[in-house]
Design a protein around this nucleic acid. Structure first.
Lengths: 336, 336
DNA sequence: CTTGAAAATTGGAACGGTCCAACAAAGCGT
DNA sequence: ACGCTTTGTTGGACCGTTCCAATTTTCAAG
């Protein structure tokens, strides 16, 4: 239909008032006479007027927008965290601009760059890698919070994560309690989170006097990585009876690997994952796991961000939540 | 550090040139003398200058941004489609602004509203519901394409989907070929896509002379919905030997329901899903399904969008892709 | 040198809003 | 009717860019 979109000026002309008044009215100011307000409303509707966010954000010098970088959209836990972030961001009257990262650091950096050009007032990073460009963002005065990764010394950067070391220990504790001794670990790569889960595993094994049983197989935070690592574990000369897999997505791959070897879960091999993704709760998967409170982590992260927006100078905050063991069907007692 | 962010003016002052020249240089024009370009670059770096997208988009009268509305971020197929969309959007030099929808129509509409205020140049809707607000968007001159839902008569709206009726028929064909006769269907709600899959099922059943065996159980496009519907199917007096579930996510729930009844898949019950989500391919799930080419649908959708952006007047295009049967472990021959 | 064309640079007017100080109108007590 | 406050309304400057016409500089040819 349209030609150029109607502006505030067009509305003003039609309603027979000044553009300033329209501006006030559109934002619901109470200084506008009811009659004028009505006239303006009807003029706006008639023209199909819609405020121009670019102009507004230019004049305001604020965008009312929070940028979200999701490093791995394919991991279902991302969706769960995003839900929480969105809920909180919306509740605060802001909007969300979401971009996806990738293994390609340069691309990821350019995505952050874009967010900053849009003058986002804050940045939420969901993932375990520290993206190039985040430092720039922060020193460029953009409050940032990172989820699922602990970070405490960088000024202007808050973080929220669970205690991966404790969580990994819980996994081993639980398996040990079931009688397992030859407990393998399939790793999640060399990012900080994966490394902490690995240390937790090693520490726990050592504390049970099982140092010699420590066996790490290289995996990744993907289904494929879990499959690969677990296949290697099963093919090894050690007779592992249980595998602690670095995250749930990989653990689903691990289940596949076990099945492919013709072994039964949990009769012959117990599998425990990490994260607590909702999908793992389905009976057809039934994955025992160390769960993080994903949605509330998202909410808390956004809350943290708004606190920092209101008080930019404050010291970095790191919230660390306790993970919790969720027992399902992929683990069972050891019968040698 | 910062105080107010540096603007093009600050860069100009430092480099000793006019702001116009900086503007040119920042966009890589070849009309700028190499010496000036270098001076400007270095001034920009020194100040940490970053263009203001709001100002640019205001002056340009274009945002260089495509809005994406994802109705169900929790369905893993969304991530796969998004990947495709992003790839194509990036390749065209645009950016992506992603928002999530929800069951709440009002909220969804307001999200679209936001995208439009941001002057997005196009809109991609991923999902099977037609969101309130999309019509406004289109009549407001915003090119739109909708993915996974067929739509062909609305001017300005392109769509891309697979042929759900054919796909559903394929599912029944395959199960029939395996010897199944008492084939149940767990529905995906009352959205258009779910209804088409249901019709395809019914048509196929009728064409095999199995009209009396038609049995639909109410489900939803969620794991929980699949669980519920399948549980009902198994509890019914009909001795179903196979279930065609409306989508993969629900089919995973269906697998759980079958397991909970202590039945074996595929020995006693065959399950077939729809969509072809990557997760279903894992051996631990091993879901037989009717697959759509998700990533390429995303790419094609974005491509369609750009075509319409360049030629707004053209007639609505609907691309319909053929689904394809992917056989895995959740289906087997009937042995009555 | 001069000259004209090409190359490089510039100032100022948009873009569509918000904000502010100033002004007009209306209400009110006396 | 009188100031005085309160309530409504307005024009114009400004936000940080891009664009354009106009200007200055450079340079090769005569």
């Amino acid at each position: 239909m349209a030609g150029p979109r109607p502006t505030i000026k067009d509305v003003a002309a039609l309603a027979g008032v000044s553009k300033s008044l329209v501006s006030l009215a559109m934002r619901g100011s109470d200084r506008v006479a009811p009659a004028s307000a009505a006239a303006i409303q009807s003029a706006a509707n008639q023209l199909g007027y819609r405020p121009n966010a670019a102009a507004r954000s230019l004049a305001d010098r604020r965008s009312n927008t929070i940028g979200v970088l999701v490093q791995d959209l394919h991991n279902p836990i991302s969706a769960e965290i995003i839900d929480g972030v969105q809920r909180q961001v919306r509740a605060s009257g802001y909007h969300t601009m979401l971009v996806t990262g990738s293994e390609d650091a340069a691309l990821e950096q350019s995505e952050i760059e874009k967010l900053l050009e849009f003058q986002v007032e804050g940045l939420v990073v969901i993932g375990h890698r520290m993206p190039a460009g985040v430092r720039d963002a922060i020193t460029g005065d953009c409050p940032t919070v990172i989820i699922t990764r602990a970070e405490s010394e960088i000024a202007g950067l808050d973080s929220i994560s669970n205690n991966d070391i404790v969580g990994a220990r819980m996994a081993v504790d639980y398996l040990h309690g079931l009688g397992h001794r030859a407990i393998a670990h399939v790793t999640g790569g060399d990012n900080q989170v994966a490394l902490m889960r690995k240390s937790g595993y090693e520490e726990a094994m050592i504390s049970y006097g099982l140092a010699k049983n420590i066996a790490c197989y290289e995996g990744a935070f993907t289904d494929e990585g879990g499959y690969r690592g677990t296949s290697a574990a099963l093919a090894s000369k050690y007779q592992h009876s249980a595998v602690f897999v670095a995250n749930d997505l990989a653990a689903v791959g691990a289940l596949a690997a076990v099945a492919d070897q013709g072994l039964g879960v949990p009769e012959e091999i117990s599998i425990i994952g990490y994260d607590g993704m909702a999908l793992g709760g389905l009976r057809s998967i039934g994955l025992t796991t160390i769960a993080q409170p994903l949605a509330s982590m998202g909410e808390d992260a956004a809350a943290l961000l708004f606190q920092r927006i209101n008080d930019p100078g404050r010291l970095p905050v790191h919230i660390e939540l306790e993970p919790r063991l969720v027992i399902r069907n992929s683990t069972g007692v050891y019968h040698g």
